[in-house]
């Protein structure tokens, strides 16, 4: 993947496949480090699947027996000297607290760090494709002594839009793009 934001898009779609209705994407960035978390309330993974999920030959897809989403994220983290962490609680075990969280740690000052890229497009793409799911996006950037916070919570948007307007409406998507871009620029 050319940008980490593409890995994030890819991984977040696993959450939607797992029937999550809330996906939280959190980025914490300093000058030298990036911590990424993608957390959902989907049906989770069995301990056996969790143990095997780093393996490209382990996948939920049915068109073929290869899944590269998590291995590609793992590679992107490890090639900077970082790592990934996976935790998951199955719905059948604990329906109240089920879900999966993937954390990835990157060394930004490493030569092989993949730039985050167009994260705004990743957020709008998720909303466009799966507007029935809620997203909480948080990006904290602590650099040169100052802190910037970029945040979006579709649950707040839904309260205002009501049932009449889907989050995937082009005007709403444009609003999302602009609000995020303004926060990054500000």
């Amino acid at each position: 993947m050319k940008e980490l934001s593409l890995n994030i898009l890819d991984i977040a779609q696993n959450s939607i496949t797992a029937e999550a209705d809330l996906v939280e994407i959190t980025l914490n960035e300093t000058e030298t480090e990036l911590e990424l978390s993608i957390k959902d309330n989907g049906y989770g993974m069995s301990p056996e699947f969790l143990a095997s999920v780093h393996d490209p030959f382990s996948t939920t897809r049915t068109t073929r027996k290869v899944g590269l989403g998590i291995p590609l994220l793992k590679l992107a983290a490890e090639q900077t000297g970082g790592h990934i962490e996976l935790t998951s609680v199955q719905r059948s075990v604990d329906p109240e607290n089920c879900g999966t969280e993937i954390k990835a740690f990157f060394r930004k000052d490493h030569l092989d760090f993949t730039p985050i890229g167009d994260i705004v497009s990743t957020v709008t793409t998720l909303i466009q494709g799966f507007p029935e799911v809620d997203y909480v996006f948080t990006h904290r950037i602590c650099e040169a002594g100052s802190e910037k916070l970029v945040a979006l919570d579709t649950r707040e948007m839904r309260i205002i839009l009501g049932d009449d307007v889907p989050l995937s409406d082009p005007m709403v998507l444009m609003w999302v793009r602009q609000t995020l871009e303004e926060q990054y620029a500000g």
Partner: peptide, 15 residues
């Protein structure tokens, strides 16, 4: 920040 009021306007226009 792009205000939530603008979102309310989109809703009005869309209804």
């Amino acid at each position: 920040m792009k205000s939530l009021e603008e979102l309310a306007k989109i809703r009005e226009r869309m209804q």
